[in-house]
């Protein structure tokens, strides 16, 4: 049996002076700033500075304010903006609807086999990577691709889908559904399922229970998710270029043509600012509606 008399009390290697500054359990602000310095440098240098510079350049470079009048005066740019926004709204609606149904099934499904297949379906586009995803959609919707074979088989006949805004919508939805599922899965998993059983035990039908219990509880998460899907969709580049082709007007194509082909940085920056303002407005509204916490959680 050890007794404390047997134990030699050893001084610690570092003994600080008595009466020094009170020791605080949290790390001091100076040390915290040092730890944060790389992050702050990167954020300031390559996130905030570029965005601010973009806004300033759009007002001052090349033609100054005329950059904006050019953007809005040009009929094809106006059409591109319009197409981009409408397509993004459609994408958001479809993506959140499909994402919510998939996420809800992933949360509630009992059979491990079905769950595995559903996860595989959600992850498959994710695994393919940005460009390959769009390539897969090209193969799927091309003139003699599988989708047109199906349409022909059911008597609708082959349609020109590739290089239309429809193809772009399909492509963006295909890319965004996994993200929507991830964020909505978190939302649904946080909802106590016994609430639904409780509602049904009180005589609600399944659809009533879903509408009166699940939808209100999931709404803030769904709003956050929708806002993110919209903001990201507006900025899609690869899909409009590959699936829209040269003819379909999307802002991303307009911007890249102006910057990489016509070297009109002023015009491109003004067009970019327009996209940023739209996306920021939507995210800002979502922020007011559901708060920062939910919005950040929807990203991760």
């Amino acid at each position: 049996m050890p007794t404390h008399a047997q134990t030699i009390r050893r001084a610690l290697p570092s003994l600080r002076r008595e009466g020094a500054r009170p020791w605080s359990p949290t790390v001091g602000n100076v040390k915290a700033l040092i730890l944060l310095a790389p992050l702050v440098a990167l954020l300031v240098g390559f996130v905030f500075y570029p965005l601010v510079k973009l806004a300033i350049d759009s007002l001052t470079s090349d033609h100054g304010l005329r950059n904006y009048s050019d953007v809005f005066a040009n009929a094809s740019t106006r059409r591109a903006l319009y197409t981009t926004l409408i397509a993004s709204v459609i994408v958001t609606a479809i993506t959140v609807a499909i994402g919510a149904m998939l996420a809800w099934h992933l949360v509630t499904v009992r059979s491990p086999a079905v769950r595995a297949v559903l996860w595989l379906a959600v992850l498959a586009p994710f695994w393919m990577g940005t460009v390959v995803k769009n390539y897969a959609i090209i193969l799927f919707v091309s003139h003699d691709g599988l989708l047109n074979d199906l349409l022909a088989a059911v008597g609708i006949g082959r349609q020109q889908i590739l290089y239309t805004s429809g193809a772009v919508v399909i492509g963006i939805v295909y890319s965004m559904v996994p993200y929507a599922v991830f964020s909505l899965y978190g939302v649904f998993a946080g909802i106590d399922q016994s609430l639904l059983s409780a509602a049904q035990s009180m005589g609600a039908s399944r659809i009533q229970a879903l509408r009166t219990i699940l939808v209100p509880l999931a709404m803030p998460g769904a709003v956050a998710s929708a806002a993110l899907v919209f903001a990201i969709s507006v900025g899609f580049y690869v899909t409009p270029v590959l699936l829209g082709g040269g003819q379909t007007p999307f802002m991303a194509s307009v911007i890249q043509a102006n910057i990489l082909t016509y070297y009109d940085y002023g015009f491109a920056s003004a067009a970019s600012v327009v996209l940023l303002v739209v996306a920021t407005a939507i995210l800002g509204i979502a922020l007011r509606l559901v708060g920062r916490e939910r919005l950040v959680r929807a990203v991760a």
């Binding site: 990201i232 991303a252 890249q256």
Partner: peptide
Amino acid sequence: IVPLSAYAV
């Protein structure tokens, strides 16, 4: 979360 093509510009 920023629109990527705008951020790229």
